Simulated scan of single mutants.
Amino acid sequence: MLLLQKIALENGYTKIMLGSCASGIACHVLSATVKGHGYSLPADVQYVDTRWDVPVVLPLRDVLAQELSLLCELDSLKTQQLLDRPCRGINSLVASFVARLREENPSREHTILRTAQKLKPFSFNKFSADGYHDFLPSRLRPKDQIEDYLLEDDDVGK
């Protein structure tokens, strides 16, 4: 992330959009939990992360890896497959575990993601009026933020 931030600052970019999909984030949630890095999970699973100088946006957060592969195939885009290596670490073990869960029930990755999303986001992950919400589906905004927005609109009319 530091390297991406350095490149973005050098080139004057205003946002970094990562291609992390639901499948990858589900693996990250489980491996971070196993490693004891659960404190940062609320920040890692949100659409927007403004901790950095250049904000990071995850527009593909709700798309499964299989869906993404199918879309790339339909658009005739080339994709790269990772080499199958023996499991040597926690990340590999978690990835194989999530793959087995996916075989039983493809919605498990979304379930893991929804469970992690219930963690209270940090202030730098909140939707704000500075335009980061343009990349996000409005149907997925947290209820308390929608209520705050509606209350602000009601106050304007008075």
Rank of each mutant, 00 (worst) to 15 (best):
R100E: 13
I90Q: 11
A22Y: 09
S92E: 15
E73R: 01
L68W: 06
K6F: 15
F135K: 00
Q80I: 13
N11S: 00
D144Y: 05
S20C: 04
R100N: 14
F127D: 07
P121Q: 10
P59A: 05
Y47R: 11
H133I: 15
R108C: 04
G36W: 09
K118Q: 12
A43W: 07
P86G: 05
H110M: 09
Q145M: 09
C72V: 00
N105I: 00
L2D: 15
S20H: 02
A43Q: 13
S31D: 11
T115M: 10
L70H: 15
A129H: 09
D134E: 15
L60Y: 14
P86C: 03
V45G: 02
Y13W: 07
D84F: 02
E147R: 02
P137W: 07
L64V: 10
I16E: 02
I112E: 07
G89M: 11
D53C: 03
P142E: 13
A129M: 11
R85E: 15
E109R: 00
Y132P: 06
A95P: 04
T33G: 14
P86I: 10
E104A: 10
E67P: 09
V98G: 06
L74I: 11
R85D: 13
L4H: 01
I112F: 00
V63W: 07
R88N: 14
K15H: 07
R141D: 08
R61P: 01
L9G: 09
D153S: 05
V57C: 06
D153A: 11
A26E: 09
S128L: 13
L101D: 12
A32R: 02
L60E: 15
Q145N: 04
A65L: 06
S76Y: 00
D130H: 05
E10Q: 11
C27R: 07
K6H: 12
E10T: 14
R102H: 14
L68C: 14
P106R: 07
E109G: 00
A65S: 11
S23L: 03
H37K: 03
R85L: 15
L74V: 06
G131Y: 03
A99L: 11
M1P: 04
R114K: 04
K15N: 00
K118R: 14
N105V: 02
L71P: 11
K6I: 15
D49G: 05
A43P: 03
L18M: 05
R108G: 03
P86T: 15
G38E: 13
K143S: 06
D154M: 02
A129R: 10
D75P: 01
G157E: 09
S31A: 08
V94D: 04
F122C: 04
K35L: 14
V98S: 08
L58F: 02
D53Q: 08
K120F: 11
E109N: 06
H110A: 07
P121F: 05
R102N: 12
P59Q: 05
C21L: 04
R61I: 13
